[in-house]
Design a protein around this nucleic acid. Structure first.
Lengths: 252, 252
DNA sequence: CTGTTTCTTGCATGAACAGGCAAAACATGC
DNA sequence: GCATGTTTTGCCTGTTCATGCAAGAAACAG
């Protein structure tokens, strides 16, 4: 049994019962109580529970802050990209934001005092914006795809069709000067196309590993990109073609 | 065996089980553990899994969501109610779940191994269910109301109209034998009415403070309630009228 | 106060790990 | 065909990590 597995099971039981007992967990997992105690200590340090004599209870400030702190993969880069991308926003604008960890980082980075209208099909983005008092949030519903963290399908398309936006933050896709913007999933690509069609401009923020890669489904041509936010270390050769086709390049 | 082949099989098992063990994969693929570790390292770098000691686990978009563990008010009671309410579920059913902290508690309590189709207009409920592999989740989009934590409006109504459910978990409202189920907001009441209309049965789980109270907007008559989940300490006088109108009473 | 349970700390052990290296398989160019 | 470079793989080396055990400290119960 993996350490992470135990942690998840402890979190589950805490969410369900509100408490766990060290001895009970030890016998359930088939490990020593010492190991369980170590687990509880770690989770307590991470703020995911409150340690008490004999076990642990659910922590009160179970805040939504670090909602989707995914895996730490390229977190710093994405935070930098997010800051640069948010710099493009003008108060009062309306936005489409689709899924992906970079877009979630952007949503978290949007200042609390900026008035915006935002439509998104990403649960992570929606959760990040749910407590922004000045953001008019429109959730684009549909069939939820766990792998993407977003909603897709006919319902989503219908909802997008009724809206228009100044900017579309297009996320997590392949980016290639020749093939343009591409996605890995047919339904996902359809939603992105619909958003692109109803937006005045497209913004793409990508880490270097997305540059010069292509996926099967075509979303938009390279000439449709208004703003391209990339890392400082992005290879210039990969950017020149986008720039010549009208994209503004922003270095994070 | 090709490298890419192994990667795909790892992704498959991760999607199915949520975890993989390095040693187990090595013997299954007939390669050394070093090779498997290299595979896992690469997939982790690509963000397709999260590496842990001994193997890897699925990268959870947002692990411990619990959007609005609101103020810790009556957490224990709601947890008990949630457990009792979940006891009413039958695998394979389809559900409507609307907003409120009690319904979020119910969503969190739904076991990970239960297959269900669930449509919700609550971001909190959706986030709680987002990582349930066997739940077909349908997000009912629309204008998001921060105070309620749910989506309402014409879009939401249209989405509800296309669906049907076995049970409707109706949340956070006033409950009075004479006036039936009532809500505090016109748009909210509209959505609840639509869900009620398209469901075979209504389930309501309430803490004692909601009993014998009424709000301005009428949602459904007391006779529409199929199951009523209440605390053990609920006053019998408040329940008798519901029972006589056909509701089953469940004590948490 | 006394005994019991639970907790922390330190330590030893074995498993899992990353990095370097070399052999084998494969592709590429002449 | 032959030489050269690349990729993949397994093995080796030292290191890190998870775990259980033991001893002492702290919390609890009577």
């Amino acid at each position: 049994m993996l350490t992470e597995e135990r942690h998840q099971l402890i979190r589950d039981q805490l969410a369900a019962d509100g408490k766990v007992l060290a001895g009970e967990l030890a016998s359930r997992f088939g490990v020593s109580e010492d190991t369980v105690r170590r687990d509880l200590r770690e989770l307590a340090k991470a703020g995911q529970l409150r340690r008490v004599y004999g076990g642990a209870v659910a922590s009160a400030p179970f805040a939504a802050a670090t909602l989707s702190q995914r895996s730490g993969h390229a977190v710093e880069e994405k935070t930098r990209l997010a800051k640069a991308a948010v710099g493009l926003l003008v108060p009062g604008q309306s936005l489409f934001i689709d899924g992906g960890t970079t877009n979630e980082a952007i949503a978290r980075t949007i200042p609390r005092d900026m008035e915006l209208t935002i439509a998104t099909n990403s649960l992570g983005v929606a959760s990040a914006l749910a407590d922004r008092p000045l953001v008019e949030l429109i959730v684009l519903g549909g069939r939820y795809v766990p792998d993407l963290g977003t909603c897709v399908g006919a319902d989503t398309l219908a909802a997008v069709a009724q809206l228009g936006a100044d900017l579309f933050f297009l996320g997590s896709c392949g980016l290639d000067a020749a093939r343009g913007v591409t996605a890995f999933d047919s339904a996902e690509a359809e939603v992105k196309r619909a958003m692109a069609k109803n937006s005045a401009g497209i913004v793409i923020a990508v880490t270097n590993d997305k540059l010069a890669t292509a996926a099967p489904y075509r979303v938009a041509g390279a000439d449709a990109i208004r703003h391209l936010v990339v890392e400082k270390t992005a290879p210039a050769v990969a950017l020149a073609d986008f720039q010549s086709q009208g994209a503004q390049i922003h270095f994070a």
